[in-house]
Design a protein around this nucleic acid. Sequence first.
DNA 1: CGGTATCCTTCGCGATACTG
DNA 2: CAGTATCGCGAAGGATACCG
Lengths: 113, 113
Amino acid sequence: MKLRKEYTCPLEFIHDILRGKWKTVIMWQIYYRKNPSLSQLQKDIKGISQKILLEQLNELLEYKLILKEKSLGYPLNVQYYITDDKGMKVIEALKIYQKLGEILLEEFNSSNN
Amino acid sequence: MKLRKEYTCPLEFIHDILRGKWKTVIMWQIYYRKNPSLSQLQKDIKGISQKILLEQLNELLEYKLILKEKSLGYPLNVQYYITDDKGMKVIEALKIYQKLGEILLEEFNSSNN
DNA sequence: CGGTATCCTTCGCGATACTG
DNA sequence: CAGTATCGCGAAGGATACCG
């Protein structure tokens, strides 16, 4: 997701950061799965390719919404974390969305007959 | 924003609804401006075209995150509202984003020298 | 297993002109 | 003032192959 050079509105800024197709699901999975590896994430998120997953992870890393930790040795292993301050703020918002989504989805599916 | 035919995950569903480039800003402006007209929104949101604004409004209307009310007579006038139940849930989440955005934006701008 | 590079497709968004 | 129709572009994202 290409950001502008300048932002005046904080909401526009964060919206652009999180607009990517898989961003919120990735955040949610990292939170829910408690520090998963790359391959774990790829298993959990149906339909995403490794390239896209990494792209979106890197954007989240850039703004410190998540962190990455490599453990030494083989086989290679990496863990992704939600940051306590910034990342958890997103999770708070996502919890609201989660509940709202349940309501909307129920209506959506039942009107799709 | 083209939605899938089916969703299993509530979060993916609402994320897709709100992914549109101007969606959250539109929601925020309707809330902040208290039931603005179409032209009012277009003045407030810099850089959006009327066509896109209407497109995104219609998508928000479709899922009852906002409502529209036409007043009779000329000149034509329309007011957009945040719905008390669903719409306000989004606003709650956006308030969190708003605060977080302020923090991120400050860091972003100061590292852009 | 984690990560990068290339190429290709699609669709979201914008410009513009027009209608009631 | 509110809303629709048409057309075109660029960027987001997907497939695939390869590297440490």
